[in-house]
Design a protein around this nucleic acid. Structure first.
Lengths: 340, 340
DNA sequence: AACAGTTATGCAAACGTTTGCATAACTATT
DNA sequence: AATAGTTATGCAAACGTTTGCATAACTGTT
């Protein structure tokens, strides 16, 4: 019994055909007769032939592999995006190789090199927090490797991006609070070095202006990374303040949850005294009491859309399109925390 | 300007050396003089040479790639495990290609074939829920491709497994409730077709017996998949029952959280009237009020351990070890929900 | 000066698949 | 019966790297 795996040559010898015919038969090439195709397929099945995709990739210069760089995999948002990527890729004959940049620029650059070595057909990226300059991605782009960014995307070069409309989402959330009867709407914001949090702040302000409410700087609190702990601090700041809000739009669900808990402990009723809206529709938003009104940021769909766009760019013959930005619709999910 | 990428041959021509020398120089082969190595490295750097790993994999029959099959990526437990896998693999020069079985046996089998075609060096798997028979994995094993299972592992064949001690963890959790003064400890259990939930039930019973408490069947409730909703139903069942528990060990955190919420709404004080312990240390356990006592199931470490074992098996020359089972230590994290 | 031993490099084949081109074997048309 | 057209198959090269073996150029020993 031979130890090594069956190759096209083995099949060829057994069937008295040439390897090229076998290759074409299995690839359903039109020039091969149906009779031969049947014979080949049957024999391949019998011998348990497994085509060597490495050899195929090597020859075709096409790996059917997509590289993904996310800051971390264990953050729910990213795990949802990656799930969407894997699902869409799988259904279209592509495989997914994942890397965590750990929000390190150095590691991001290392990964880019590895992906280049591995000859992936395309790359999907959410930028590391440290990345201010995208030259390493521009290089990749020059080499003709398709690139799609999601969520945290570069501003300094024209490329493919999948984003949500943070401005509009924030506007919607704030408008909802106003329409629920809030007169003094606060905002807990993320780092202003990140565009998405800037946009959320702007959307919030725009809604206030549209409804002729004053933008009070004392009602806007800033955090570094919107952690649960920072949320607690913000809540305490609001509590100490003389001019308390009667509604708060939080830039993520973690801070929203911490505000709910701190306020409740302080005897403030949610939503009666203060209405709360979060952002991202994290699992906890359905569990916290009262259930949290929030924005569905469509993470899974983001992964799907990124992959769809990437594959189109990979397979596109037409080189006329150089870049594309897709903005996904978000959705305000109204739950108890905001219904006065 | 040439359009295609630089190869060993290009470097060879430029330096008046043979491709083999270039290959060895870059691979730091001892037979190459330091002077030559320096020259080669410098030129490679200058021309931006990127070694073609596909060609290398093809020639060496080694892809430096690990295939991972998880039921889904967007479940927190699995995203943590995968994070551990990626981290350990990356630090040891391996890449990770991920697949979701979606708990479908058919898809699991398809993926196995793809991984075989792709010539991955090894595979890490958490079995799909539908998988009762592991013949497709046995085949892989016969071909000499190293295989490591985690969490949901096969019982019908001898292979590499990373598990936690569910029995002991459940014993610890139950013992803790008993020592906190509970006299009537209930248990919300998962599907008994899954070994880990069987083991948790057994551990619970063993603790009761050890402390001379009766095992009351009416206090043990069964669910299909330990969902939040099923937890709510269990809580309601307990409420209606004439013989209520004063402590409950839940087989996961979701059901524990739902019990806390339903009981609190019914005016039952947690932990004073009923103490609660969960399982898995989900993020929500630190947020729910009262904070949930639970078992740290070491998901990240599980991923690391699986990868470490797999890489050892890949690189091991010694064929004498055929299989290994590693049991990770868990940890009881005591929080407010169980302190009477 | 002859030889053995060491050091550095090159040659050429191999890995398994794909594909442009050639060609053989038919079929249909005059 | 000769020709053109079609259909099915084979030949051989190529993709970029690695590696066993050969060999050339030294160094040191007698």
């Amino acid at each position: 019994m031979k130890n090594s795996r069956i190759t096209l040559k083995d099949l060829a010898k057994d069937l008295n055909l040439s390897p090229s015919t076998i290759s074409r038969a299995l690839g359903n090439h039109p020039a091969i007769s149906d009779a031969t195709k049947k014979r080949v397929q049957k024999m391949a099945e019998e011998l348990g032939f497994r085509p060597n995709s490495i050899a195929s990739s090597f020859r075709k210069k096409k790996t059917q592999t997509i590289g993904v760089i996310a800051p971390r995999i264990d953050i729910h948002f990213h795990s949802l995006v990656i799930s969407g990527i894997e699902e869409f890729a799988y259904n279209n004959g592509y495989n997914v190789t994942i890397f965590q940049s750990k929000d390190s620029l150095k590691r991001e650059k290392e990964i880019i090199k590895i992906l280049q070595n591995k000859m992936v057909d395309g790359i999907i990226v959410c930028l590391s927090i440290e990345t201010k300059n995208c030259d390493h991605f521009k290089k990749i782009n020059k080499l003709g490797i398709p690139l799609v960014f999601y969520d945290r995307v570069p501003t300094d070069f024209d490329t493919n991006k999948i984003i949500i409309n943070d401005f509009e989402s924030a506007y919607l959330a704030t408008e909802h609070l106003i329409k629920s009867g809030c007169k003094r709407v606060g905002h807990i914001s993320g780092s202003q070095t990140t565009n998405i949090f800037k946009a959320r702040l702007e959307g919030y302000k725009a809604a206030l202006k549209h409804y002729k409410l004053p933008v009070e700087e004392s009602l806007i609190l800033f955090t570094n990374n919107l952690s649960y702990e920072e949320g607690v601090k913000c809540a305490e700041t609001y509590l100490k303040s003389t001019t308390k809000p009667d509604g708060i739009f939080c830039a993520n669900d973690y801070t929203a949850v911490s505000v709910i808990q701190v306020f409740r402990k302080a005897g403030i009723k949610i939503p009666e005294d203060v209405a709360i809206v979060g952002f991202s529709n994290y699992p906890i938003s359905k569990i916290i009491e009262p259930h949290l009104t929030t924005i569905n940021d469509r993470a899974f769909q983001m992964g799907e859309a990124a992959t769809k766009l990437l594959i189109r760019q990979i397979e596109e013959k037409d080189e006329s399109i150089s870049s594309e930005t897709i903005t996904l619709k978000t959705e305000l999910i109204i739950r108890e925390s905001s219904i006065k």
